[in-house]
Each structure stands twice: as C-alpha cells, then as structure tokens.
Design a binder for these strands. Sequence first.
DNA 1: TTCCATTTTGCAACCGGTTGCAAAATGGAA
DNA 2: TTCCATTTTGCAACCGGTTGCAAAATGGAA
Lengths: 332, 332
Amino acid sequence: MPPTLKDVAERAGVSRAAVSRTFTDGASVSLKMRRKVEKAATELGYSPNALASSLTTGRTKLIGLVSNNFHNPIFLEVFDLFTRGLQERGLRPLLVNLSDETDPANSIRMLRQYSVDGVVVASSTLPPGFAKAFRDAGVPVVHSFGRYASSPEVHVVGIDNAECGRMAARELIRRGYRDVAFLGGPESATSTQDRFRGFMEELAQHPEISVRHSFAEAYSFNAGRKEMLALLKHKPAEAYFCGDDVLSIGALSAIADSGLKVPGDIGIIGLNDMEMAGWENINLTTIRQPISQIIASSIELIVSMLENPDRYPEARLFPCKVIERGTLRPVD
Amino acid sequence: MPPTLKDVAERAGVSRAAVSRTFTDGASVSLKMRRKVEKAATELGYSPNALASSLTTGRTKLIGLVSNNFHNPIFLEVFDLFTRGLQERGLRPLLVNLSDETDPANSIRMLRQYSVDGVVVASSTLPPGFAKAFRDAGVPVVHSFGRYASSPEVHVVGIDNAECGRMAARELIRRGYRDVAFLGGPESATSTQDRFRGFMEELAQHPEISVRHSFAEAYSFNAGRKEMLALLKHKPAEAYFCGDDVLSIGALSAIADSGLKVPGDIGIIGLNDMEMAGWENINLTTIRQPISQIIASSIELIVSMLENPDRYPEARLFPCKVIERGTLRPVD
DNA sequence: TTCCATTTTGCAACCGGTTGCAAAATGGAA
DNA sequence: TTCCATTTTGCAACCGGTTGCAAAATGGAA
C-alpha cells in the first residue's frame, strides 16, 4: 500500500491538514512546516491521491476522449496530439472507444461515474446530438471535427466541410475536368453529407459539367477500393473527389489494378492531408485539414470550460487548402 | 451536481448502506428494498461515483495504457484492440503518451496518483527496466511487445524477435538472395537489437552470403525512406529485411524514386503485417506479428494480476509467420 | 402461538483527502 | 516588555461512497 497523508503527518509530527496544505498550491504554510513535511514525504515516497482529493475539490483532471475512428490512420495523429496537449496541461485522457455504438447514453453514464471534468468528442461522423447529450447531462463538452451549425448548441471545432466540397469542385473545374464525381464516405456521416452538399452546390453553377456520386461503406482503404472497383466496371468519371485520404488511397489501388493511370486517365483529390498522403509512393493531391490547430483549439476550449462551464457555445472553423501533389492533372 | 447516494437514500426512505448495497453485486438486499431503491435511483438519474467507491474497495478499474509509438500506424490497431478489450471487461484505459520520455518515474507517479489497478506498457522499443520500475513500485504491469528474457522479471507478451530475424534470413536465403542486408529501426530499440541479432545468427551459418546492416532513426516512413535513399547511392544489397512495415514502405518509396523495381531489382521483407501492408498498392511481403492474440493475452494477464498481484512473471510468446506478397522474388 | 435460525437492515467508522473556523504563534511597533 | 494585526496551525466536519457488527425482521418448524 502506498503511504497516505496520515503516514506523512505522523512522521513529520504535524496535523494532516498541514500536509494537505503543503501539497495544494496557494495554501498557507510556513517555510519551516513545508520543509518538515516535504522531508517526511520524500522519505516515505508519498504523492497525494488525486481521486481522494477530487472528492472535495470537485476536480479530477480527467478528460474523456471519445472517438469512433479507430480505423482511420489520421486518428493516430489525433490521439497523439490530444494526449500530449492534455498532459502538458496536467490533464489525463480517459479513452473511450465507441466502436459502432452511436448512442451516447453508455458513455455518459460511464464518464460521469468517473467524474471527468470534461469530454472531447473526436469524430467527424457523429451527429451534433451526440455531443449535445453530454452537455444536457451537465458535462462540459467540445466536439472536435464535428458538424458546424450556424447556431451551435455545443462547442464545435473543425472545418467547414461544405466549403471543402466547394473547394474540391472548384479545383476540379480549374483543371478542366468536365465529368466529375463525388466518392463519399458513409452517407450517415455528417462530414460526408456536408462535403457532398458543398460539392454539388458549386457544380450546380456549372451545368455544362456532368456530376455523379456514390458512397463508400466507411472511411477506410477497403471501402474506397471496393467502391472504386465497382465504379470502374462502367465508364468512370474523369476525376473524383474522395471523402477522405484513406478512401482515396483505396481508390488509387483499385485504379492501379485496373491498369488505368493517375492522373493520366483518372484524377483523384482527397481530404485531410494525413502524413501518409505525402508519402512519395502515394503522393496524393488533397485538401489539408489543419489537425494540430483544431486540436490545440479544442484543448484550449475544454480547459476554459473547466473554469466557466456555461461559456456560450461557439463554432471555431479553420480554413483548409488544396495541397497539390501528383493525383490531379496540371492546369493547362 | 449529479445526485448522490444520500439523495437516493432520502427519496427512498432507507439508509445509505441499503442504497450502496443494491448497487454492489453480491451484497445482501431484499427484493422489496432493491425495487424501492432502484425506483428512487432512476427517478433521480443516479449512478454511483466510481472514484468514491474506489477509496474503500481499493479498485478503480482504471488501467494505465502507456506507449511511445504514436507515429507507427500499427499502433492505431493496438489502441483499438486494447481499448475495446478493456472496456469489454469493465476496465477503463487511462492513456499515457510518453513522447520521447524514457524515464518511467513520471508515469509511475502520475498513475499511482490515479490509483490505477494495473498498467500495460505497449512498446517494442522500451527496455525491460521500464516495465520493471512499475512492478518495483507495486503496480501490476504487463509489457506488451516487450523484450523476451529467459528469466523475465515482469510479464511480457509478444514475439520472439530474434526468431523473426532468423526467419527473415531463412526466407531471403530460400529465395536465392546472396547479398542481403538488415535495415533496422533505431538501434536503441530492443526489438531492433533482437531482430538484428537473430538475422545475423542465421546468416553466420551461411558464410557464402554477404551481409551488411544499417539503422534508421525511427520506426517511421521518413526514416526508412531516408536510410534507403542513402543506401541507394552506393551499390545496394539484393534484398533487405526492414525493421518493420512502416520502415519498409518508406524504403519502397525510395526505391521507386530511384527507378529500380521491386522485387526485380531489390527485394524487401518487413515485419508486423499491419493492415496497410496488405493494401494492393503496397503489397508488402512481411512477417506477421499476431497483434490481436498478443493484446487479448495481455489483457487476460493484467486482469488475472488484479486478482493475484504476485502472480509469478511469465513470458508469453506468439509465433510469427511469413506472409508472401509481392516484394520478394519467387523461389525458383 | 412460540421459538429460533436465517436474512435483512441501519449505525457508525472508515477510505484519503480538503477546508472553514477558531486558537495559537509570530513579529513589528510603541 | 506589552500590544495587536497578521500569519500559521489544528480541529472537526465533510466529499461520496463501503462494510463489520449488532439489532431488527422474517419465516418455517414445533
């Protein structure tokens, strides 16, 4: 059993309150007392029990990190940045893997049982209602990569997916493609819906360009590959805006198998700019989502909610931009 | 503020002990009492505070998941499997990102402050001493993907890396390569050292085959690419055993850039068989490490240590096998 | 109905901390 | 040295639960 406050107090010959005070900053302790206590504490190898103290302070410094994107390589970057960012601020990530669960009830109950100080929902597929359920349960929440709404009910940090759809459309038009298509992620994902909407909106202004669309089953390599293999059976479009990078890479592999060339025969533009997109044997033209800014901002926001839980909800959107690599033909 | 035991007790008109008992299984409560309490609890939306109860039970159901491999895509699979496996058993993963920290002291202090019931160290690069420090601090620990020692001091679950090195060597020999090399991960990683040792051991029995070796700076795409680019400046070997898959993919990209063909001009064999290795545009011949078995076994082991913390340390090693794809030339 | 073994319940102390309040200690001014 | 404002300290109650023990309730047998 690790030593407790009481053990330290006895060894130092002082009250338990005194020991507690030397370990909570801002508390009133004389230098002499502090030294005595610290000596006893180091001798015993004492460090305060964060959970016991949370009982009275009402703060656990635990942050729930909830996600359902454990198959998209970009989420490794996301977890890396979140865990490091939280740790730097003395917060601890309690990871929740939703798998296919889309009902927030279980997560909410669990995270409340552990008295988390706040929750970050990191997902581009869950609907706004998911995060809202946390807010309704009185848990401070930030939805990272979530859907932007003009009057957000919870804090959202991410990108304007519809604008990304428009941006992709403009890029394809600019490069002279006249027969384009959207190869989306799962139709139920908010990010898919928004990217699709923006893409179609922009193309609606160019009636001379033909557009089609289809959806993959997931944001994954296999789903992208499978869908593209199906598309290749009939006459494919000249260029595709794929739901995200991993989907794009799946599509690229299908195209390579078919003997067609990218960008000679078919153009592909992705979204995310995950590390892998820049790998020389992938070299994907894509739209960069500023992951690290989004995460830094999300952390800042959840931290500020710990101070002020009733902070008025806001949407923080970060601009994206096209990263030109080798999967779209050059502008002529 | 969420409702507490006291609120439920008052509403149900019973003692706090009675409420506590209806929420701890195995406790003595009459059916009538249980109904009364459950009614009050649901009306108030009560669920017990796990941290408060941990104070007396001595169990938090928190498991520290410590890793430093946030840049290797295979670790997304690792985190997925660990979080799901732990959740299924009612345990909660508290994620610790070591970044470049290799001193366990901070992690130990932090995880003890949160009274974790146990710790899983998931890393193929940290030395055995890292996990041992947890054990010495009285924290049940399992080192997944760690170095196997003939007399382990802590539980280790993983593979025999030296045997994998031998296996890679045998595979290259079998395919008639006579000028081979080891392109390792960072030299400080235990997995690199062991794979290297095994590889050299096997080749020592074939003096007619020339062998060389070098090390990349990290288990990452860029490091693999950079090292292979350097190797290509002089006459490269006929075939390389790369430290792991992501390193292999980096090497493949360098080779592609140079105009050489795989497997025509150079052969590559990796290790891990991460999902990406099977992607058709990568199609990497590699040695499969049975990730999900390793993780299932690690979880089983840490769970059993919760019951019996003094369980005699054991090493659990899982066999690996060559997965033949397209980056080694066929046996003639 | 009475008796007694068994089950259920509540009391009160405890887990490891924090904190308001009053008492004790400190230290500078007169 | 005395006095008093300020700082430091300890007491005791509390945070939200659990649990040993004894008392109360239950229920079957006589």
